[in-house]
Amino acid sequence: MKAPRSKLASLFSLNQHRKRLGAADVANRLDQLNWNEMRDQIIDGDKLEYTYGSDKNLQMHLDSLKCEFVGRSELEYYHATLIVLIRRGFRVDEEFKRFEKLWYEQKEFLINKLNTRWLISACDTFIDHSDDDYLRSLLMNAVILVNTIKMQESERYLTATENAKVDASRYSSLQNERLALFDGVAGFAVGTDDTLRNMRWRLDKLAQSHPLGGVVIEIFERVQKLNADTVYSRFRALHIRDKTAWWQD
């Protein structure tokens, strides 16, 4: 399993630098906004459309992302924008403090209004950057729950044939198209997806925060074994991209 990129490596990554271009202007615009007013401002548009992948140009990515929030509040889009800035490594400590403050001041609104896709993105953000180990551990339950459901539903789509074997055309479609599951949640790009690798990185970091954390890692490894016949092991058998592997050899 590939190790996560260090903070130093991210700092000097040309690709990461390109993905942060224009971030200061975006953050400055966010500084001028009023959270309470944004709750009542609805985003106009012709059609709600989910993003698939991520444009390296920050502004282009944010413009595409806004289509996910057509008919929804500006505050929900603001929340998503903060997550994008944090994930692209822009003033992470400062932007995470703003993200954390937003959640504590607007938690009822965010919990009730955000779809499951963005609630899980929020959980991932807290797990990555919060100093509260209890909160991080608590939110990891939601991440594992939804990711396991995503796997099971993606497999059901992949094997919805008479003999319940993997359908080649559906496998290909999962590589190239977004499979809508429920409440904004999309299926796995089976074979290449980095979702489980990222989840494993977070799980490893959490496990290191307690002397008995190894119990969780051992159980997680056991469900990956090819003879275990679980959705995790079956997806492992279909995986072809080494850098997004989520198990230890």
Rank of each mutant, 00 (worst) to 15 (best):
K2F: 13
K2A: 13
A3R: 15
A9S: 11
S10Y: 04
L11K: 09
S13Y: 01
Q16I: 00
A24N: 10
V26A: 03
V26M: 01
R29P: 06
L30H: 12
L30P: 05
L33D: 07
N34Y: 10
W35K: 05
M38T: 06
D40R: 13
D40N: 12
Q41H: 11
D44V: 11
S54Q: 05
S54I: 08
Q59L: 07
S64Y: 03
S64P: 01
K66N: 06
E68R: 12
E74I: 10
L75R: 00
Y78F: 15
A80E: 02
V84W: 03
V84N: 05
R87F: 08
R87N: 13
K97F: 00
R98T: 01
F99N: 00
N112V: 05
K113C: 10
N115D: 07
C123L: 09
T125C: 14
I127P: 00
D128H: 07
H129R: 02
H129F: 10
S130P: 04
D131R: 09
D131M: 11
D132P: 07
D132Q: 05
D133I: 11
Y134N: 09
L138G: 08
A142I: 10
I144A: 11
I149C: 12
E153F: 07
E153S: 08
T161L: 15
E162H: 15
N163T: 14
A164D: 10
V166N: 02
S169Q: 12
R170I: 07
N176M: 07
E177C: 07
R178S: 14
L179Q: 13
A180Y: 15
L181P: 15
F182A: 15
V185H: 04
G187F: 04
F188C: 06
G191A: 01
G191D: 03
T192D: 02
N198D: 13
M199F: 13
D204L: 14
K205H: 14
L206H: 01
A207L: 10
H210T: 08
L212G: 02
L212M: 05
I217A: 02
E218S: 09
R222I: 03
Q224Y: 03
K225V: 12
T230G: 06
V231I: 12
S233Y: 06
R234Q: 12
F235M: 09
R236T: 04
R236G: 00
A237E: 03
L238I: 00
H239K: 03
D242R: 13
K243D: 14
A245E: 14
W246T: 02
W246H: 01
